[in-house]
Design a protein around this nucleic acid. Structure first.
Lengths: 215, 215
DNA sequence: ACAAAAGTGTTGCTGTTACACCCATGG
DNA sequence: CCATGGGTGTAACAGCAACACTTTTGT
């Protein structure tokens, strides 16, 4: 009557307004050489949250990630060796791709719509969890969106992310007016300097004004 | 390294605009005589959803309840005999209190803010899950609101429920205008006949118009 | 000077809020 | 006929959608 439980942690980041996920390459059979969501089996002296934190710590080398519990997966065929229940977590990190340069042979960031070949049912898990994520962002506005954008983002960057979450195009000018006009963001005084065209102002959220807002 | 898993099912209903929960009384030790959320331990040939359905079936005698997975609970002290992980589910039924007359000695409906003495950590679970519920309803998560009000409700009744979910008072007249004016509800032609005062019209949701609406 | 990308203005529509007043029923 | 509770009206305001134009950079 007992079951194995694991806590896969979907590590996400909004980089240039695109949602990215941090995966590891499996070193042994089964699924050797496939990419997988980092995970760890739960023992009976550890809570789910602690277990998820350990996965995050082990993968990124960072303590105290912000993690949220999401869906549980219990299909009988999801692991052929043991009956394995997955209780998945989301961890959000800040623009990790460029800042941490953590891409190595066996750990790498992938754009969420350009996933590599994944082991087990992990592609299914990612799809389900990111579907959940969209819903969560639209409710937990402050709790989640702000974690993706702690500071120093441009409005076009934020807009890209919104368009991904809402899955529809947004008028650039109205978007700008909404956030600046309603004082939802604060100009940091700095500018981006990437590429051609006029540089964008770098903003951070006006946390108080964002409280209770719906995206 | 293995753990017991159970699936408590929080059976809910909006009766007269008040949120109610269906609980059972525990017949044996520990917590004999306390009220508890119906639950069942998972074996390793059953999915979580199937297990939750069985709990619902067993408690109500009805098949095919609408159930949603919510939070998992893993504190070490939540069950003192075995390490027990709870993966909780919400089931929504229609005005069950009056229709099903299912109140007996060991099964009963309770108003969510007038709970009896609960066993284990079940009060904590109910509090956490109903907190989740509010968030889920406000995003129209899988059209949850419509599950609570399949048909033949009055607007004051719906308003009560809204006020509970949003946790703030709403102007009666604006509420009425919003739903009737935007054709979010359809008048069934019937009236209530309870109590004093002018009888209210009975409505059902205009499902198409409600699609994607945020409450 | 030209392309590329960011910032600003105007107008109308839709939905919300804040109010006061009228209608249908039971005692 | 009056208390109780449901239904209707109106006016001001905020936020959103749909538009065209201007400014700042790199080449």
């Amino acid at each position: 009557m007992q079951n194995y439980i694991e806590t896969p942690v979907i590590i996400l980041s909004a980089d240039e307004g695109k949602l990215k996920i941090y995966l590891e390459k499996k070193k042994d059979e089964p699924y050797k050489g496939y990419w997988i969501i980092p995970s760890k089996i739960l023992d009976n002296k550890t809570t789910l949250e602690q277990n998820a934190q350990m996965v995050y710590q082990n993968m990124t080398g960072l303590d105290g990630g912000i993690i949220f519990q999401t869906k549980a997966f219990s299909d009988l065929e999801r692991n052929l060796q043991n009956r394995m229940i997955a209780i998945s977590y989301i961890a959000i990190t800040e623009k990790t791709l460029t800042d941490m340069k953590q891409n190595t042979n066996d750990k790498s960031w992938f754009q969420i719509d350009e996933l590599p070949k994944l082991g087990y049912d992990h592609e299914h898990i990612i799809n389900e969890v990111t579907k959940e994520l969209r819903k969560k962002i639209t409710t937990n506005y402050d709790d989640m969106l702000l974690k993706f954008f702690p500071s120093d983002f441009t409005l076009p960057e934020l807009q890209n992310f919104y368009e991904y979450v809402l899955n529809k195009p947004i008028d650039r000018r109205n978007f700008h007016k909404k956030f600046v006009g309603q004082d939802l963001v604060i100009d940091t005084g700095f500018k981006t300097s990437k590429g051609s065209g006029r540089p964008g102002a770098l903003y951070r959220f006006n946390v108080d004004k964002m409280k209770g807002k719906k995206i």
